[in-house]
Computed example of a mutant assay.
Amino acid sequence: MDDRPTHIEVPDVVGMTGREAHALCRGLGLFLGYYDMDRQLPRSMVIAHQEPPPGTMAAPAAAVRIWTKWDPLLDQK
């Protein structure tokens, strides 16, 4: 019997840094996708929008696409 879930609830990653969102999604069995996968998100960027929206049920290994915005407070850390 296979105990793996057939669907995973997409978390709310808006407001998180890329690193936080990546860790959360990976732990749930989802991928985090953004426009330039060859480069890591700068530390000063936070997630402004995501697709699919939080609460959506997704297949395991599905991608959560994100759009980011600059957060000047993160540059000061």
Score class of each variant (00 low, 15 high):
Arg4His: 02
Cys25Asn: 12
Ala59Ser: 15
Arg26Val: 03
Lys77Arg: 15
Ala21Asn: 02
Met16Arg: 14
Ala48Asp: 09
Met45Arg: 12
Lys69Arg: 15
Leu74Pro: 03
Gly55Glu: 02
Ala23Ser: 11
Asp71Trp: 02
Val64Glu: 02
Val13Cys: 08
Asp75Pro: 01
Met57Glu: 14
Trp67Pro: 03
Thr56Ile: 09
Leu41Pro: 02
Pro60Thr: 01
Asp12Trp: 09
Gln40Trp: 07
Tyr34Leu: 03
Tyr35Leu: 13
Arg39Glu: 13
Gln76Asn: 08
Gln40Ala: 13
Ser44Thr: 11
Arg43Ser: 10
Leu41Asp: 05
Leu32Ser: 05
Gln50Asp: 00
Gly27Gln: 09
Pro60Ala: 11
Trp70Lys: 14
Leu32Gln: 07
Gln76Leu: 15
Pro42Met: 12
Tyr35Glu: 06
Val13Pro: 00
Ile8Ser: 03
Met45Glu: 10
Thr6Glu: 09
Pro60Glu: 09
Leu74Lys: 13
Gly15Glu: 09
Met57Gly: 03
Ala59Pro: 03
Ala48Gly: 10
His22Glu: 15
His22Leu: 14
Glu20His: 06
Gln50Gly: 02
Leu74His: 05
Gln50Met: 09
Asp3Tyr: 04
Ala63Tyr: 11
Glu51Gln: 11
Pro52Lys: 02
Tyr34Pro: 01
Pro72Lys: 08
Ala62Ile: 04
Asp38Ile: 04
Glu9Leu: 02
His22Phe: 06
Arg19Gln: 12
Arg26Leu: 09
Glu20Lys: 06
Tyr35Lys: 15
Met57Cys: 08
Ile8Tyr: 03
Asp38Gln: 08
Val46Asn: 06
Val64Pro: 00
Gly18Lys: 07
